[in-house]
Simulated assay, not measured.
Amino acid sequence: MTAPSLDAFLKTNAANLPKGPVALIFAEDDVGLGSTIRHHARIGFANILLLAREGTVLPTDCHDLCHLITNDPFNDIPLNVAVTKANDAFAGRWIYYCYNAEYLHFPFCEDRSIGELITFITEERRGSAFTYVVDLYAADLDSNPNGYSLENAHLDSSGYYALTRWKDGNVMDRQLSIYGGLKWRFEEHLPWTKRRIDRVSLFQSRKGLVLDEDQLFNDEEYNTYQCPWHHSATISICSFRTAKYLKSNPGSTFDVNSFAWAKSEKFHWNSQQLMDLGLMEPGQWF
């Protein structure tokens, strides 16, 4: 059954969802849709809300893994508005959000669930998890012209950097803007406001919390990368979104003949590789 809108779904079903975190997957197209749903179900999300265009057809094995909600990403509500609406509907619950063809990884996710991660973060008295969005891409664009390939996924092993975040002339405490990956190497094809690769994709909902268009919260503590007293666990979203954009955008597709470069490394789809590259850390979670 498909809900006609997010508002309609939340009004009817928000109070009846099983306990546990809620995942919002915002589908911009059909690329990787089934694998995105399966991946997040596998790591422990029992409540997956898929916002997708009317007429979207899911793989048969995904029908029972998610709630399908009609939403045109370019004409209906944008992601930040959907996240804010979910925050208001699921007060106190943990919420995660991503796009299709994006895959959440956290330290030791091969053996631990998203619920266990949330328990640890809560014990550290944090309400959010700082997230690195790591660009994935197919090394061979002749065989994968849209830049998407699970079997041949690569990532950049270096070229990442962080800048102190400023607001109203002041340095923001424990906040960083992170850059790197395809958005750094092909920055001429992206507006500067879209080049950050940091995101706060996992957070505990709270009354009055709002996510803005830059994917920053109105509560500054939610935008921090660690506790005041020690390093905190961070997480990664491994994403084909930038690769898809660069190969689908008429302004860049003919300028990008290959995403591969000297620092490309095959992605092994495990958390240890991401930790070894410094793209997430366990903090005090052992």
Rank of each mutant, 00 (worst) to 15 (best):
residue 150 L to R: 12
residue 100 N to L: 07
residue 101 A to L: 02
residue 191 P to F: 10
residue 114 I to K: 04
residue 181 G to N: 04
residue 159 G to S: 07
residue 147 G to M: 06
residue 168 D to G: 13
residue 118 I to Y: 11
residue 145 P to I: 00
residue 115 G to F: 01
residue 118 I to K: 11
residue 109 C to M: 15
residue 112 R to L: 13
residue 124 E to N: 14
residue 188 E to W: 00
residue 172 M to D: 03
residue 134 V to M: 02
residue 188 E to T: 13
residue 123 E to Y: 12
residue 131 T to P: 03
residue 186 F to Q: 05
residue 176 L to A: 13
residue 107 P to Q: 08
residue 115 G to M: 02
residue 177 S to Y: 00
residue 181 G to T: 01
residue 177 S to C: 01
residue 156 D to C: 11
residue 153 A to W: 03
residue 102 E to F: 05
residue 158 S to Q: 09
residue 164 T to A: 10
residue 124 E to M: 12
residue 136 L to C: 13
residue 153 A to F: 09
residue 152 N to F: 03
residue 187 E to L: 08
residue 134 V to A: 09
residue 164 T to W: 00
residue 169 G to V: 08
residue 184 W to H: 12
residue 159 G to Y: 00
residue 110 E to W: 12
residue 183 K to L: 02
residue 112 R to A: 13
residue 139 A to D: 00
residue 108 F to N: 13
residue 150 L to F: 11
residue 105 H to Q: 13
residue 142 D to V: 00
residue 142 D to S: 08
residue 183 K to M: 02
residue 147 G to R: 11
residue 103 Y to C: 00
residue 107 P to S: 02
residue 163 L to A: 09
residue 133 V to M: 12
residue 123 E to L: 12
residue 127 G to K: 15
residue 152 N to H: 12
residue 165 R to T: 10
residue 103 Y to P: 03
residue 105 H to G: 04
residue 125 R to H: 14
residue 175 Q to I: 10
residue 156 D to N: 10
residue 109 C to N: 14
residue 173 D to M: 10
residue 145 P to A: 07
residue 156 D to T: 03
residue 141 L to H: 06
residue 139 A to E: 04
residue 106 F to A: 05
residue 150 L to S: 02
residue 184 W to E: 15
residue 125 R to C: 07
residue 114 I to M: 08
residue 128 S to C: 01
residue 189 H to R: 01
residue 111 D to L: 14
residue 150 L to W: 13
residue 109 C to Q: 03
residue 129 A to P: 01
residue 151 E to R: 14
residue 135 D to L: 12
residue 129 A to N: 07
residue 149 S to P: 03
residue 122 T to K: 10
residue 176 L to W: 03
residue 161 Y to K: 03
residue 149 S to C: 00
